[in-house]
Amino acid sequence: MTKLNAFVAALGLIAPTSALLRFGCARLTVQRLDPLVNPGMIPSTHLHQIIGGNSFNATMDPKTHDLASLSTCTSCQFTEDFSNYWTAVLYFRARNGTFKRVPQRAQAGMEGTQGGMVVYYMSDALFDTAQKSTVTAFKPGFRMLVGDVEYHNREQARNFRQLTFTCMQNEGTRAPEYLHFPTEPCPAGIMANHRFPTCWDGVNLDSPNHRDHVAYPESGTFESGGPCPTTHPVRLPQLLLETVWDTKQFNNKADWPEDGSQPFVWSSGDSTGYSTHADYLFGWQSDSLQKHLDGHTYVSAPTLNTQSISQQNKCTVPDVVNEDFDSWLTELPGSPVMF
């Protein structure tokens, strides 16, 4: 994405003919739970920040757990969206080796949101406002994972397109994007961008590694109109998660490692950034997402119902893992191996 298009997208000024649903979600919970990769494990291997429907729990068996019917509230703006979305949590590692969780901050226009992320569903390429493409909304029971917690170098990270970081100079900064953690202090925070694959095999709602049933375009990207491979012919909306980690209080280089290396680390133990990953469990009510996507509208969502930020903030789930993750810690929750 060019700097101009990225900046315009950030401010919500794309022409109405380009279909894009953008909305904020408050924090549902921060816990060591992962029903996709570590189902039933309490606690899971590392800490996550989770948004969406309040039926979220450690198990969520795809055969019996219907998010839309079992959730009674959602931390997202649109009340039809009971999906769950989650990523690892960012920590600051001080010069003395202790760790402090980095808080998340709301983007402009969403002030007051507690933690959380901004979610995008795109049905048209942003660069071609005349395009009226057709995408198929995710189906009930659909799940996927993007990224790999074991990755630790640039070549491995190339397997996942557009999993990036932005060193925000101000609220409108959306470029350049990096595959690794920024190496200099970021005045307005670090944005983590998680773009999911946009092609589906049309059959499987999940796969053993939660990735094989989806694929990236055969060439280019979703935004450039790249075609889907024949193995995954069904075109999905582009799902994008933006998380702004409020790193301002950690920008004093005197507190950074003595060798001058960047001080941030994922809760999984990764200090490179290459292991960045995100999980998605679809949970939209009935055909509400498909109806919106078919309407080719931007920002306005006439077929969806909106709730206030205060209502979003009230939707939470109880802690089931009793551990301290917010104090200054001598090791990360779960003591993952650092790399």
Rank of each mutant, 00 (worst) to 15 (best):
72 T>V: 08
46 H>G: 06
81 D>G: 09
84 N>A: 05
85 Y>D: 08
76 C>A: 07
67 L>F: 05
65 H>Q: 11
75 S>Y: 05
50 I>Q: 12
49 Q>E: 14
53 G>N: 12
86 W>K: 02
80 E>L: 09
82 F>H: 13
29 T>D: 03
48 H>K: 13
46 H>S: 01
37 V>F: 09
62 P>Y: 01
89 V>Q: 11
52 G>N: 09
7 F>V: 10
70 L>C: 06
17 T>W: 07
72 T>I: 05
99 F>C: 01
40 G>L: 09
101 R>C: 04
84 N>M: 04
35 P>A: 13
19 A>R: 15
53 G>D: 08
23 F>R: 13
74 T>V: 12
91 Y>L: 14
67 L>T: 00
34 D>I: 08
21 L>Q: 12
82 F>T: 02
6 A>D: 10
19 A>G: 15
20 L>F: 03
96 N>F: 04
10 A>W: 09
42 I>K: 12
73 C>N: 11
85 Y>H: 14
77 Q>N: 02
11 L>F: 11
48 H>M: 01
86 W>G: 02
14 I>V: 06
90 L>Q: 12
17 T>R: 13
99 F>H: 05
64 T>R: 07
18 S>A: 15
20 L>W: 05
31 Q>W: 01
14 I>A: 14
85 Y>N: 13
23 F>G: 12
19 A>Q: 14
41 M>P: 03
81 D>Y: 07
84 N>Y: 00
62 P>M: 00
33 L>V: 08
41 M>L: 13
92 F>Y: 14
39 P>T: 04
93 R>T: 04
6 A>R: 10
20 L>D: 01
96 N>Q: 08
78 F>H: 06
52 G>M: 00
90 L>P: 08
88 A>H: 11
74 T>L: 07
73 C>L: 13
15 A>Q: 13
